[in-house]
């Protein structure tokens, strides 16, 4: 009996946030017939793929004890860079993708350089990066949206392709974090920077790489979004960083670093996606949606912390 109870606590400790997601699904499944369809499930996955990709990048960054506010702007940078190339020649799909990712990776590298080598606090460095990248998107596109007419490029955002891209990235990221040396170093750097440094981890190089990764993933997310909407817009992606941070934190990533999993972030982004979709299906008005979203995010994290605390 005692053992069983302990197991229950262990379960709640480990899977607290998953329980929240399951409860949300049970509620939605019982009140909304639409929610029971596979189409809607695919729909949610497709809608979270863009935010999910940047949330994974955000997880890496937050695990080092940092934060990356540039990702929303980088979505726009990626869209306009790819857009400009595709407007000039709709067949240059590969070039457009590579260029967009490289430019975003470069912005990530600038963030990483200032955080790791100039020791600028991540919040400040990436806040600056956020406005610089947004400005860059406006300057580059002259403020105009690019309308895309490339058949091949639009395939990236169609059907289950965004979901597959998202899940592959999640899988690779999970392997990096749980199986590879780079992943262990990230945990070590975020857990205790000085100790990691003393034990021979090149923390600066690790930080730089993590921010580059964040930029690259934002670039990929931007491409998926541009393909989904068939346009590259300089104003797109505003506020996306907040959903990404929320997903990572809901998923149990510690803002002070050293703790976090890709699986947790996946659950976090699914909670946000289920919320957006569910509130639309329940015809909740646009005004109330924002309040309810905030309350549920707060409640989910409280439940998670509480369930962890109870077994301590």
């Amino acid at each position: 009996m005692k053992i069983k109870k302990l197991n229950g606590m262990e379960f709640a400790k480990k899977y607290g946030i998953l329980i929240v997601l399951i409860i949300m699904w049970i509620i939605m499944l019982s009140v909304s017939p639409t929610f029971r369809t596979t189409d809607n499930a695919v729909n949610i996955l497709r809608q979270v793929s863009v935010n999910g990709i940047i949330a994974i990048g955000m997880t890496f960054v937050i695990m080092t004890g940092g934060i990356d506010l540039t990702v929303g702007s980088l979505i726009a940078v990626s869209g306009v860079v790819a857009g400009s190339i595709l407007v000039a020649n709709p067949d240059n799909v590969i070039l457009a993708i590579i260029a967009a990712i490289i430019v975003c990776g470069f912005f990530g590298a600038i963030n990483g350089f200032f955080v790791a080598y100039m020791r600028v606090p991540a919040f400040v460095a990436t806040l600056a990066g956020m406005t610089i990248a947004r400005g860059f998107a406006y300057v580059y596109s002259d403020g105009k949206p690019y309308t895309l007419a490339s058949e091949n490029f639009s395939l990236i955002g169609k059907g289950s392709v965004p979901i597959i891209i998202f899940l592959i990235i999640a899988l690779i990221s999970h392997i990096i974090l749980s199986k590879m040396k780079f992943g262990r170093y990230i945990y070590a750097t975020g857990g205790n920077l000085k100790a990691a440094s003393a034990s021979g981890v090149k923390v600066k190089a690790i930080l730089l790489k993590v921010y580059i990764l964040g930029g690259v993933l934002a670039g990929i997310a931007g491409i998926v979004l541009a393909s989904r909407t068939n346009s590259g817009q300089p104003a797109v992606g505003t506020g996306y960083e907040t959903d990404a941070i929320a997903a990572a934190v809901i998923g149990g990533t510690s803002m002070t670093g050293g703790v976090g999993t890709i699986g947790g972030t996946l659950i976090g982004i699914l909670i946000i996606g289920t919320l957006n979709n569910g509130l639309n299906l329940l015809d909740v008005s646009s005004y109330y949606q924002q309040i309810i979203k905030g309350l549920i995010i707060l409640g989910a994290v409280c439940f998670d912390i509480h369930s962890k605390g109870s077994s301590r």
Binding site: R228, V236, N277, N280, S286
Partner: peptide, 23 residues
């Protein structure tokens, strides 16, 4: 049957419509 704000945005309009089409 439904009235929602998509804040003038193409991507938001797209996801809201996807939700509606199922329902």
């Amino acid at each position: 049957v439904a009235t929602l704000s998509a804040s003038w945005s193409r991507s938001t309009a797209m996801s809201t419509t996807e939700d509606w089409l199922g329902k």
